[in-house]
Amino acid sequence: MNKWIVSSACAALLLAPLAFAQSVGEKTGVNSTLGISPTTQDFVTEAANSDILELAAAKLAEGKGNADEKKFAEQMTTDHTKTSKDLKELVDSGDVKATIPVKLDSSGQKKLDELSDAKPQDFAGYYDPMQVSAHKDAVSLFERYAKSGDNPKLKDWAGKTLPALQHHLEMAQNLNKNRD
Protein backbone atom coordinates (compact mmCIF):
# COMPACT_ATOMS: atom_id res chain seq x y z
CA MET A 1 0.00 0.00 0.00
CA ASN A 2 2.78 2.44 0.91
CA LYS A 3 4.58 1.71 -2.37
CA TRP A 4 1.37 2.49 -4.25
CA ILE A 5 0.99 5.84 -2.44
CA VAL A 6 4.62 6.74 -3.06
CA SER A 7 4.33 5.71 -6.71
CA SER A 8 1.15 7.71 -7.14
CA ALA A 9 2.68 10.75 -5.50
CA CYS A 10 5.77 10.49 -7.72
CA ALA A 11 3.63 10.12 -10.82
CA ALA A 12 1.58 13.17 -9.83
CA LEU A 13 4.74 15.21 -9.33
CA LEU A 14 6.14 14.10 -12.67
CA LEU A 15 2.91 14.78 -14.56
CA ALA A 16 2.03 18.10 -12.90
CA PRO A 17 4.38 20.15 -15.09
CA LEU A 18 2.69 18.74 -18.19
CA ALA A 19 -0.51 20.53 -17.23
CA PHE A 20 1.41 23.80 -17.52
CA ALA A 21 3.61 22.80 -20.46
CA GLN A 22 1.80 24.83 -23.07
CA SER A 23 1.92 28.09 -21.14
CA VAL A 24 5.60 27.68 -20.33
CA GLY A 25 6.29 26.26 -23.78
CA GLU A 26 4.62 29.16 -25.54
CA LYS A 27 6.74 31.63 -23.59
CA THR A 28 9.96 29.82 -24.45
CA GLY A 29 9.14 28.86 -28.03
CA VAL A 30 9.25 25.14 -27.24
CA ASN A 31 5.68 24.60 -28.46
CA SER A 32 6.56 26.16 -31.79
CA THR A 33 9.57 23.87 -32.18
CA LEU A 34 7.47 20.84 -31.32
CA GLY A 35 4.48 22.01 -33.38
CA ILE A 36 2.21 21.93 -30.31
CA SER A 37 -0.95 24.01 -30.37
CA PRO A 38 -1.10 26.79 -27.79
CA THR A 39 -3.92 26.94 -25.26
CA THR A 40 -6.71 29.36 -26.11
CA GLN A 41 -5.45 31.86 -23.51
CA ASP A 42 -1.86 31.57 -24.77
CA PHE A 43 -3.00 32.06 -28.35
CA VAL A 44 -5.06 35.15 -27.46
CA THR A 45 -2.20 36.58 -25.38
CA GLU A 46 0.42 35.98 -28.08
CA ALA A 47 -1.82 37.24 -30.92
CA ALA A 48 -2.73 40.39 -28.98
CA ASN A 49 0.89 41.06 -28.03
CA SER A 50 1.86 40.62 -31.66
CA ASP A 51 -0.76 43.17 -32.73
CA ILE A 52 0.28 45.66 -30.03
CA LEU A 53 3.92 45.38 -31.08
CA GLU A 54 3.12 45.61 -34.80
CA LEU A 55 1.00 48.73 -34.34
CA ALA A 56 3.60 50.47 -32.15
CA ALA A 57 6.48 49.49 -34.47
CA ALA A 58 4.52 50.71 -37.49
CA LYS A 59 4.05 54.08 -35.84
CA LEU A 60 7.82 54.33 -35.36
CA ALA A 61 8.44 53.22 -38.95
CA GLU A 62 6.14 55.94 -40.24
CA GLY A 63 8.50 58.49 -38.65
CA LYS A 64 11.94 56.88 -39.02
CA GLY A 65 11.59 54.42 -41.89
CA ASN A 66 12.46 54.67 -45.55
CA ALA A 67 9.74 54.77 -48.23
CA ASP A 68 9.41 50.96 -48.38
CA GLU A 69 9.21 50.67 -44.60
CA LYS A 70 6.60 53.42 -44.44
CA LYS A 71 4.47 51.61 -47.02
CA PHE A 72 4.89 48.33 -45.13
CA ALA A 73 4.01 50.07 -41.85
CA GLU A 74 0.84 51.46 -43.38
CA GLN A 75 -0.24 47.92 -44.34
CA MET A 76 0.65 46.63 -40.86
CA THR A 77 -1.44 49.39 -39.25
CA THR A 78 -4.46 48.54 -41.39
CA ASP A 79 -4.22 44.76 -41.01
CA HIS A 80 -3.23 44.56 -37.34
CA THR A 81 -5.91 47.08 -36.36
CA LYS A 82 -8.40 44.71 -38.01
CA THR A 83 -7.05 41.58 -36.29
CA SER A 84 -7.08 43.37 -32.93
CA LYS A 85 -10.71 44.36 -33.50
CA ASP A 86 -11.67 40.83 -34.63
CA LEU A 87 -10.00 39.20 -31.62
CA LYS A 88 -11.66 41.64 -29.23
CA GLU A 89 -15.07 40.90 -30.80
CA LEU A 90 -14.55 37.13 -30.36
CA VAL A 91 -13.69 37.59 -26.69
CA ASP A 92 -16.37 40.23 -26.01
CA SER A 93 -19.05 38.03 -27.60
CA GLY A 94 -18.26 35.25 -25.14
CA ASP A 95 -17.35 32.86 -27.97
CA VAL A 96 -13.76 32.83 -26.71
CA LYS A 97 -13.06 32.64 -22.98
CA ALA A 98 -9.80 34.52 -22.55
CA THR A 99 -8.34 37.79 -21.35
CA ILE A 100 -6.76 40.14 -23.86
CA PRO A 101 -3.65 41.94 -22.59
CA VAL A 102 -3.90 45.72 -22.72
CA LYS A 103 -0.18 46.43 -22.81
CA LEU A 104 2.87 44.89 -24.39
CA ASP A 105 4.69 42.07 -22.58
CA SER A 106 8.28 42.66 -21.43
CA SER A 107 9.83 40.88 -24.43
CA GLY A 108 7.85 42.99 -26.90
CA GLN A 109 8.56 46.15 -24.92
CA LYS A 110 12.29 45.45 -25.11
CA LYS A 111 12.08 45.11 -28.91
CA LEU A 112 10.03 48.29 -29.16
CA ASP A 113 12.51 50.18 -26.95
CA GLU A 114 15.42 49.10 -29.18
CA LEU A 115 13.48 50.23 -32.23
CA SER A 116 12.56 53.52 -30.60
CA ASP A 117 16.18 54.19 -29.58
CA ALA A 118 17.51 53.46 -33.08
CA LYS A 119 18.77 56.45 -35.03
CA PRO A 120 16.96 56.98 -38.36
CA GLN A 121 20.03 55.83 -40.32
CA ASP A 122 20.14 52.60 -38.25
CA PHE A 123 16.38 52.03 -38.12
CA ALA A 124 16.19 49.54 -41.03
CA GLY A 125 18.82 47.36 -39.34
CA TYR A 126 16.44 46.89 -36.41
CA TYR A 127 13.02 47.12 -38.00
CA ASP A 128 13.42 44.90 -41.07
CA PRO A 129 14.81 41.76 -39.34
CA MET A 130 12.41 42.29 -36.42
CA GLN A 131 9.49 42.17 -38.85
CA VAL A 132 10.73 38.92 -40.39
CA SER A 133 11.14 37.33 -36.97
CA ALA A 134 7.80 38.63 -35.64
CA HIS A 135 5.90 37.37 -38.66
CA LYS A 136 7.60 33.96 -38.61
CA ASP A 137 6.44 33.65 -35.00
CA ALA A 138 2.92 34.84 -35.87
CA VAL A 139 2.61 32.43 -38.80
CA SER A 140 3.74 29.54 -36.57
CA LEU A 141 1.30 30.54 -33.81
CA PHE A 142 -1.67 30.86 -36.16
CA GLU A 143 -0.81 27.67 -38.10
CA ARG A 144 -0.62 25.63 -34.91
CA TYR A 145 -3.86 27.01 -33.49
CA ALA A 146 -5.72 26.70 -36.81
CA LYS A 147 -4.60 23.06 -37.02
CA SER A 148 -5.40 21.90 -33.51
CA GLY A 149 -6.71 24.71 -31.31
CA ASP A 150 -9.44 23.86 -28.82
CA ASN A 151 -11.92 26.68 -29.55
CA PRO A 152 -13.73 26.12 -32.88
CA LYS A 153 -14.51 29.80 -33.58
CA LEU A 154 -11.02 30.96 -32.70
CA LYS A 155 -9.54 28.08 -34.68
CA ASP A 156 -11.59 29.14 -37.73
CA TRP A 157 -10.53 32.78 -37.31
CA ALA A 158 -6.86 31.77 -37.00
CA GLY A 159 -7.15 29.80 -40.26
CA LYS A 160 -8.82 32.71 -42.06
CA THR A 161 -6.21 35.18 -40.75
CA LEU A 162 -3.22 33.01 -41.63
CA PRO A 163 -2.95 33.94 -45.36
CA ALA A 164 -2.62 37.64 -44.49
CA LEU A 165 0.14 36.85 -41.98
CA GLN A 166 1.93 34.68 -44.55
CA HIS A 167 1.74 37.61 -46.97
CA HIS A 168 3.13 39.93 -44.27
CA LEU A 169 6.04 37.52 -43.80
CA GLU A 170 6.79 37.59 -47.54
CA MET A 171 6.61 41.39 -47.52
CA ALA A 172 8.93 41.56 -44.49
CA GLN A 173 11.42 39.17 -46.09
CA ASN A 174 11.47 41.35 -49.23
CA LEU A 175 11.91 44.47 -47.11
CA ASN A 176 14.84 42.84 -45.29
CA LYS A 177 16.34 41.50 -48.54
CA ASN A 178 16.15 44.94 -50.20
CA ARG A 179 18.08 46.38 -47.26
CA ASP A 180 21.12 44.16 -47.87
Score class of each variant (00 low, 15 high):
residue 44 V to N: 13
residue 124 A to D: 09
residue 53 L to F: 15
residue 17 P to R: 06
residue 172 A to F: 05
residue 159 G to Y: 09
residue 121 Q to H: 14
residue 122 D to G: 05
residue 63 G to A: 14
residue 87 L to D: 01
residue 49 N to Q: 10
residue 32 S to D: 15
residue 86 D to L: 02
residue 43 F to H: 03
residue 83 T to Q: 11
residue 179 R to W: 13
residue 151 N to D: 09
residue 146 A to F: 01
residue 78 T to L: 08
residue 122 D to W: 06
residue 112 L to R: 10
residue 84 S to E: 13
residue 132 V to L: 11
residue 84 S to V: 04
residue 124 A to Y: 08
residue 167 H to C: 00
residue 22 Q to M: 11
residue 168 H to Q: 00
residue 151 N to T: 01
residue 43 F to I: 01
residue 114 E to C: 01
residue 149 G to F: 03
residue 92 D to M: 05
residue 81 T to N: 07
residue 37 S to E: 04
residue 150 D to Q: 08
residue 76 M to S: 04
residue 101 P to D: 00
residue 113 D to A: 10
residue 108 G to W: 07
residue 127 Y to G: 07
residue 167 H to M: 03
residue 76 M to V: 02
residue 134 A to D: 09
residue 22 Q to H: 12
residue 108 G to A: 09
residue 67 A to W: 07
residue 78 T to G: 13
residue 156 D to Y: 13
residue 77 T to F: 07
residue 118 A to E: 06
residue 134 A to R: 12
residue 50 S to C: 06
residue 2 N to M: 10
residue 127 Y to F: 13
residue 26 E to S: 02
residue 60 L to S: 08
residue 74 E to H: 13
residue 102 V to I: 00
residue 83 T to A: 11
residue 1 M to T: 05
residue 62 E to S: 13
residue 132 V to I: 00
residue 137 D to L: 05
residue 145 Y to A: 02
residue 86 D to N: 07
residue 47 A to G: 12
residue 108 G to V: 02
residue 1 M to S: 15
residue 152 P to E: 00
residue 68 D to Q: 11
residue 86 D to Q: 03
residue 59 K to I: 07
residue 118 A to I: 04
residue 160 K to T: 04
residue 16 A to C: 12
